[in-house]
Amino acid sequence: MRLALSSSRLVLATLFAGAIAATAGQASAQEPRPRDPIISVSGEGEASVAPDMAILTLSVVRNGETAEAALSANSTAMKEVLAALKAEGIADRDIQTSNFSIYPQYRHSEPKNGITEPPQIVGYEVANTLTLRVRDLQKLGGLIDRSVKLGVNQGGQIVFTNDKPDEAMTEARKAAVAEALAKAKTLTEAAGVKLGRVLEISENAVRPTPQPMMRMAMAKDMAAEAVPVATGENTYTVMVNVTFALER
């Protein structure tokens, strides 16, 4: 009888010891691992290049007593403008209608005896806007001048860009990574630690913000000569974030 009781106590003690060991193992597994030392830096690189293309907006605006009359006058002028653009070598793929509108024009009468009459339609205005890609920048000034003489009387906003800025972007990326690496080396040398391998790289590219270079005046204010245009340069910017390991 005593032997059976002792055996039971031995089994319970063994089970209790096993439970304690399992609980200790779980607690040990949940402890956070020591974090590997790293360093994160950022770098910025720029590359400038002369533009090789201009995006130009030209608008023909005409008024008439009726919508039909205004539309007819506008269409006649726009056909002449389109023919001139194509004669200057602008391809069909580089000409796009970007806006078209017909608006009634109202006359508002003064109130009489506290009574205001509703506005009356006195005419219509039709506006037709083209967006052009001009790939030969030497023709830009003459193209603007000729378009105005043929009937363009609004618009003239110019944005200079690059058809394929890949090379400039590549140079900007190289400069950004080089700056990040130089920062990392300076920081680790100052801290007395050794720079390790690259763990992560991310990029944020910033293309040039379109800037309106000029706005076209009315045709009566334009000079007889071709419009002078300065193209300048486009600057492409790339920012990178680089994370390095630190060697122990």
Rank of each mutant, 00 (worst) to 15 (best):
N241G: 12
R146W: 10
M213S: 15
G232W: 09
V238I: 15
T237P: 12
M239R: 14
I121G: 04
Q26H: 04
N63G: 13
L246M: 11
T97I: 15
M218N: 11
A176Q: 05
N74D: 06
G142M: 09
I39D: 01
R173C: 08
N74W: 12
E110Y: 00
F244Y: 14
P212C: 03
P119N: 12
E203M: 00
V49S: 11
G192R: 03
D145I: 02
Y124Q: 00
I102L: 11
G64Y: 12
P32R: 00
K185Y: 10
H108Y: 15
E46Y: 12
K86C: 09
V206Q: 15
R146H: 07
S28V: 00
T66P: 00
F160T: 02
L150W: 01
R2A: 15
N113F: 08
L187Y: 10
V227E: 00
L246V: 13
D92L: 02
L5T: 14
L132I: 04
Q30P: 01
K139E: 02
M169H: 07
G232Y: 08
M1Q: 13
R107A: 15
Q30E: 00
P51M: 01
R2C: 09
I201W: 07
A172L: 13
L58G: 02
V193R: 04
E80D: 13
A17C: 11
V61R: 15
T131W: 02
M218K: 13
A29S: 03
P208L: 05
A19S: 13
R33P: 04
E88M: 10
E225M: 01
Q154D: 12
F244Q: 02
E247G: 13
Q138Y: 02
L85A: 05
Y103Q: 06
T170Q: 14
E189K: 12
M214H: 13
G196N: 05
I201M: 07
L246A: 08
E167F: 14
S8Y: 11
T23Y: 13
E179I: 05
S40E: 15
R33S: 07
A47V: 05
N241Y: 08
M214I: 14
A73N: 15
P34I: 11
L56T: 03
D163K: 06
E80V: 04
V148K: 01
T237Q: 15
A191G: 08
A205Y: 12
R146A: 03
P210M: 06
N153A: 05
